[in-house]
Every structure is written in structure tokens, then in C-alpha cells.
Amino acid sequence: MPAIEKLDFSVIESLSKVLGETASGFTGTEIGKILYESNVDDIDSGNTKWKRLNSALANKQEQDRCANNVLLFVQNSLNPARHYDNLEWFNDTRFKVNQILSFSGLHLGENGKIEYVQKSNTISEAAARASKLKEHLVARNVHPDVLKYCKEELVVDNYFHAVFEATKSVADKIRNLSGLHTDGAGLVDEAFSFKGVPHLALNTLVSESEKSEQKGFMNLLKGLFGTFRNTTAHAPKITWQIEEIDALDILSMVSLVHRRLDKAIQAKKMYEGKM
């Protein structure tokens, strides 16, 4: 591999702090193992984890006069095969590492390999928020219709507008499937009501269990609109703060709704087609 230009010592220090973070970073034993795998001498094993890493990586870069083995350590640390059972930690840590690497024109891909990118001089907090939110949602395997709301312009201050737009997308899908033009709880009642043939049905609605499922889904939709969409539509943004963990849970719920709607039967159209 061609020699990769040396990293600034501040980049190495920041990487060491992320990967050697006390609470959620690697254990001392894991650090020793990965340093060995990366051809990096563990010259300061008695120190705290991040300082131990910083000493080893900075020393190796000076010996080699290039950053190849430092970046090999990063790749080995964030090899996806090591973290198959902890995707949230993997995505969160890779996000932090990429913030740091961007100042050197480098990026760690989802496959755990280093690649070149345009060098950053500053990091947009909104872009960082959007990228991190999307990575977490991808790890949760959310519906594609939800991912499109992970946009920089929607998370400038917090996750308020991402949630707002995502919940609006549920009503849009119901209208598209049913041909109705109402909104909110009225739309839910009109689309899924048992009075006559409903516009949309989750199942055949023959058994009591199937009818209960339909009623429960209607209540879920009304709760989603009433709790999140209506609140976000009318409350000033500053009084309705949504943190990342809340946004992830809300958007996961929206994902579930989209999947159920994708499988819904357009009962009214089917019934009218047989007349």
C-alpha cells in the first residue's frame, strides 16, 4: 500500500480518546490485542487507555514516517465483524471517528475500510446530526420512507422537524392508498372504519381477533397523530424539544406503521370492482 501522509498529532489524540473512552471504549486487553494485530508496539501499557493508545500510535507514526499502521489500527478496531452484535455502538463510534478523520481527508466506510474524501475544515453540526440519525435508523432496518426525513435542513436545532415530516408521511400514504382527502383522526376513522366496507384493511376482518387488530391499529394511528404530529404542528419548537433517542424511537414507530400500510388491503376498491 502506498504511504499515507502523517496525521496531525491532534487527530491521533482525538482518535485515541474515542477508541479508549473509559465507559464504552475497548478494554485494556482488547487494546493490547488490536495494537498487536496492527503492528504497533504497546510502549505505554501502564497508562490510562486513551493515553496508552496515543503514545503507541504517535510513536508508530514517527517510526514509519507515515500513517499506514495508525489507520490499520482504526480499521482493525472498527472491523464490522467485531461488532456484529452491537451495531448501535459501532455506528456511533464510526460516526465520531469519521468526524475526526474528515480533517485529514479520510473516511471509514461501513465495511470498515479507510477511503479518501474531500478534506473538511469545519463540521456542520446539522449535517453531523442528520448523518448520525440516518446511520442509527439504518442499523434498526427502518422503512425506506422514514430514512428520507434524515435531512440536514430538518435537524438544524434538534429532531423536531424530522419527526413532524415523518408523521405527516403516514397521513399522505393513507390518502394515497384510500383516495380520501381528510386528515388526522377523521382520516383514520374514514379509511379504516367498520361501517360498511373499509377503504383499507389489515386483514380479512372475519374473526374477532382480526377486527381487534384493525381497531388497535386505528388507535395507534390516532395516538401517533395526536401525540406527535398535532403537537409538533401547533407547539412552538422551543417548547417541544426532541432528543436523538426520542427521535429514534418515534421514527421506528413510524417505520412500523409504514410497513403495515404497505401490506394493507385496498378493500373498498376490491369490493367496488366486483359490483
Rank of each mutant, 00 (worst) to 15 (best):
residue 118 Q to N: 14
residue 143 H to Y: 07
residue 84 Y to S: 14
residue 154 L to T: 08
residue 141 N to R: 15
residue 130 A to Y: 06
residue 162 A to L: 08
residue 93 T to E: 06
residue 172 D to L: 13
residue 83 H to F: 15
residue 77 S to M: 01
residue 92 D to A: 12
residue 82 R to W: 02
residue 127 A to Y: 10
residue 101 L to T: 04
residue 100 I to G: 01
residue 135 E to Y: 02
residue 136 H to I: 06
residue 84 Y to D: 13
residue 98 N to W: 03
residue 153 E to T: 12
residue 127 A to D: 13
residue 147 L to S: 05
residue 148 K to W: 00
residue 127 A to P: 01
residue 183 D to T: 15
residue 145 D to W: 09
residue 132 K to T: 02
residue 87 L to I: 06
residue 180 L to Q: 09
residue 101 L to A: 04
residue 103 F to D: 01
residue 168 K to L: 09
residue 156 V to Q: 04
residue 173 K to Y: 06
residue 166 A to F: 11
residue 93 T to W: 01
residue 133 L to M: 13
residue 135 E to C: 05
residue 85 D to A: 13
residue 101 L to D: 06
residue 157 D to T: 14
residue 163 V to H: 10
residue 118 Q to S: 13
residue 127 A to C: 10
residue 183 D to S: 15
residue 109 G to M: 02
residue 132 K to P: 02
residue 158 N to P: 11
residue 111 N to V: 01
residue 115 E to V: 05
residue 157 D to Y: 12
residue 86 N to E: 13
residue 91 N to L: 04
residue 76 N to M: 05
residue 170 V to D: 06
residue 175 R to N: 14
residue 165 E to L: 09
residue 119 K to E: 11
residue 126 A to I: 05
residue 182 T to I: 05
residue 183 D to W: 13
residue 121 N to V: 05
residue 178 S to I: 00
residue 111 N to F: 02
residue 182 T to H: 03
residue 118 Q to Y: 12
residue 146 V to S: 06
residue 182 T to R: 05
residue 156 V to L: 05
residue 106 L to G: 04
residue 147 L to N: 10
residue 86 N to L: 03
residue 132 K to M: 01
residue 76 N to L: 04
residue 180 L to V: 04
residue 120 S to N: 14
residue 153 E to A: 10
residue 83 H to A: 13
residue 171 A to T: 14
residue 114 I to M: 13
residue 111 N to T: 03
residue 87 L to P: 04
residue 112 G to Q: 14
residue 152 E to G: 02
residue 131 S to T: 10
residue 166 A to W: 12
residue 126 A to K: 02
residue 182 T to M: 03
residue 106 L to P: 05
residue 182 T to V: 05
residue 151 K to C: 00
residue 99 Q to L: 10
residue 180 L to H: 03
residue 134 K to V: 00
residue 149 Y to N: 03
residue 170 V to F: 04
residue 154 L to H: 12
residue 150 C to I: 05
residue 95 F to L: 07
residue 111 N to H: 01
residue 102 S to K: 11
residue 131 S to P: 03
residue 172 D to A: 15
residue 100 I to T: 08
residue 97 V to F: 09
residue 181 H to R: 15
residue 98 N to V: 08
residue 80 P to E: 02
residue 159 Y to G: 07
residue 172 D to Q: 14
residue 95 F to P: 06
residue 115 E to G: 07
residue 104 S to R: 01
residue 156 V to R: 04
residue 78 L to Y: 01
residue 166 A to N: 12
residue 176 N to A: 15
residue 108 L to I: 02
residue 75 Q to I: 04
residue 96 K to M: 14
residue 155 V to D: 11
residue 124 S to T: 07
residue 110 E to N: 14
residue 95 F to C: 05
residue 153 E to P: 10
residue 102 S to D: 10
residue 89 W to C: 00
